[in-house]
Simulated scan of single mutants.
Amino acid sequence: MHVFLTGEIGVGKSTVIGKVLAELNIRPGGFVTGFGPERASPDRRLYLNPAWEEPAYDEAHAVARFGGGLPPRPDFLADSVAFDQLGSGYLDACRTWARLLLMDELGPLERDARFFQRAVLLAINGVIPILGVLKQSGHPWMDAIIRHPAVTVLPVTAANRDGLPMRLAEEFRTKLSLHSDNESPC
């Protein structure tokens, strides 16, 4: 079972994920992306961190730099090498212990990060359940995720966001109970 949320910026996709994780009381494997304290700055950076640790907002975790452009198409420079090394590394590091993978979020910034893309697709072909976010502005590399038979893409809207966390938590709880505590789901 792999569920990817999609929706408008600010609709609450990451909030839904946070509530699902809190309800499941589980430490996920995988990764999270996010802006640091300089989020409002025109020269902000996007950071990639392991989902099981507190995020670090330093150069070692920076995967994209934004600056100068006006929304909705700000100028940015994605670091495909950083995506390849960090993202692939985080997915590999948790293969032996993770019962749930978090992928928050995937989008066109990773369009040139071939190793990262391969690691994501390998995880989707695996047995560890995934909860993730897909940017709405798609890119061809994301089509393989959207079309994958094991993937469900759920739009998050103002109308459904309050009910989604409990529904998803129950679905994941059922899926996660298929694995005993002593059995690795890998």
Rank of each mutant, 00 (worst) to 15 (best):
I130P: 00
G30A: 09
P140K: 12
L121Q: 08
F172N: 01
R111N: 14
A159Y: 13
M142K: 09
G69P: 07
F115K: 11
H148P: 10
K13T: 12
G67I: 09
A22I: 00
A82I: 04
V16Y: 04
C186K: 01
K13W: 11
L178A: 13
T152F: 00
C186T: 04
R73V: 10
R27L: 14
F4S: 03
L106H: 03
V32K: 05
I130H: 03
H139M: 10
V81F: 12
L122P: 00
D181R: 15
A51H: 04
E183G: 03
W97L: 06
K19G: 00
I146N: 06
L21I: 10
W97V: 08
A22Y: 01
L91D: 07
F35R: 13
G67D: 06
H2V: 02
E8Y: 02
A169S: 14
V153S: 05
L178K: 08
T157W: 09
N160S: 09
I130G: 03
V133I: 15
F66I: 09
R114V: 15
G30N: 00
V81M: 09
L24H: 09
V120Q: 01
N25I: 00
T174H: 06
P71Y: 03
R44N: 05
L131T: 04
D79M: 09
P185Y: 01
A144S: 15
G10P: 02
W97D: 07
T174Q: 14
F83A: 02
N182I: 10
S137V: 13
G132V: 13
L109C: 05
T174K: 13
D84F: 07
R44G: 00
A158Q: 14
W97N: 08
S180Y: 02
F83Q: 02
P28T: 11
G34N: 11
Q136T: 05
R147M: 11
A56C: 02
